[in-house]
Nucleic acid binder design. Structure first.
Lengths: 260, 260
DNA sequence: GACGGTGTTTCATTATATGAAATGTAGTTT
DNA sequence: AAACTACATTTCATATAATGAAACACCGTC
């Protein structure tokens, strides 16, 4: 906390510590991880509680994120102008595929999940909306790289030269040259496959979502256990996903998110 | 801005101005409504942009809410521990009723929408998640009042004595005594009806959602044009809503939101 | 090429944030 | 029930960051 200068920085440094994994914090423990002072942290939380940004559990006294943030989150353009409108389509796609489907964009050189519709089946993956995954090991990410010239260029010039492609399973593509070939394939066939490249046992198929100006807006995928997948199924899923992407295109018109 | 003391206050005073109705702001116009100074507002927005809390449109230069808020909003308990788990049930309910369904809780003595599943029909209402409506003129609100002793007491002792019940249509219940009778009826029949009491042409049916400890957690409603409603339909809808509320109960177990 | 409207930077002044220590509170141990 | 422990909360002198007036920069328009 000491090194952070502006009040905005400090405010959000506090909020950032409240995650899905650790949603509740007391003053003292939060003070430690923030490398700050009890009074300071107390005042931050106290001020935020007054405004509904932070809730306090009346029994434990612990603090957690409040409804004001839920409210603000729903005002963000990606929610109010995109997810809010396209979600019913996603639900339809999930119903037809009977697997969990996701929509993602690029944020900070990662796949950033903005919506999902879960499979009704017992065995399914569970992803948090607002969380991130690696670009090179997911179908969503490969699609976003393959169809965005800007990001593709970034990959070629920056990522490959400076950074290594982290392996997540034995199947993860870690050779930059192979990844570039893979992306060319994705462009050619208009969809991407993640064949247990991020998590063993998990297979995904992803397609791009364009707007009516044919600008890349997001990517759409279906994800399920490898036991339920085969080549025939993938073809079927890709068809349904492409139908969904087309429905979304018609719904959003020329709307564009700033994919960075 | 001058009267606001803490940095947290100032930070969120800026963010609050970004609404669904006016999602984009320039420095100058925002300075005016905040009764502040260009430099100050510029620095706030600039700092927040660096952190992804605010986005800047590269063409117009205007600012809007950023993905960081979307991310934080999805970490709020109501989303991560409730809506995220119960949403598929809501979708099922909407499919069966073929009208838009909502889930709401109480926040600041208002109905606060936390989830929805929209009807696939052309004519439907459109509500923003994270927005609010009056308690006394909606089925969701009447249910929340009727089944929460704390809020019911509040109504009787505070609201009725100090405040008037604002009329929205000729059907709005504005007489406190009538409202109390209405709430008794709601408790007796286990559901509430909003017969064009908030908006002309709009009819809703609402039921309570309890957890496995039978504590009130939220309320669930179906909303559609009066032209599609009749007594038979209402009975059918209430059955489906009660089925949905029961499914949600099984899903959440003894989970409890802090309904205030 | 002057003008009106923006956004951005500068810097001396002002006001708020800070943290050490004192105090309060609740639960636990002796 | 007194001493102890582990928190949360309050106080207040001091340090630090926020502020705003003014200057500057960058448009597009007339």
């Amino acid at each position: 906390m000491r090194e952070l200068k502006s009040s905005v920085n400090k405010t959000f440094a506090v909020l950032e510590h409240f995650t899905v994994e650790k949603p509740e914090w007391g003053i003292t423990e939060l003070t430690k991880v923030l490398n700050s002072n009890k009074s300071t942290v107390y005042r931050f939380l106290s001020d935020m509680r007054t405004m509904g940004i932070i809730d306090q559990n009346p029994y434990s006294g612990k603090y957690s994120l409040g409804l004001k943030l839920f409210e603000l989150g729903n005002r963000v353009q990606v929610q109010s102008a995109f997810v809010g409108k396209t979600h019913p389509i996603l639900v339809d796609v999930a119903k037809n595929i009977t697997e969990t489907v996701h929509i993602a964009i690029i944020k900070n050189k990662q796949v950033f999940y903005i919506d999902k519709a879960e499979s009704s089946q017992g065995l399914k993956i569970s992803t948090n909306i607002g969380s991130s995954s690696p670009l090179h090991a997911t179908s969503l990410g490969k699609v976003l790289l393959a169809f965005s010239y800007h990001n593709y260029q970034n990959l070629v010039t920056d990522k490959i030269l400076n950074k290594t492609l982290k392996p997540y399973t034995p199947n993860t593509i870690t050779d930059p040259k192979k990844l570039i070939k893979e992306l060319e394939k994705v462009r050619a066939q208009q969809y991407a496959i993640d064949d247990e490249e991020f998590e063993l046992g998990l297979v995904c198929a992803g397609v791009p979502i364009f707007n009516t100006r044919n600008e890349l807006v997001a990517s759409l995928s279906a994800a399920g256990p490898s036991s339920r997948y085969n080549k025939e199924k993938v073809k079927e899923y890709v068809k349904i996903l492409q139908w969904g992407a087309d429905e979304i295109k018609n719904k959003i018109g020329d709307f564009k998110l700033n994919i960075t």
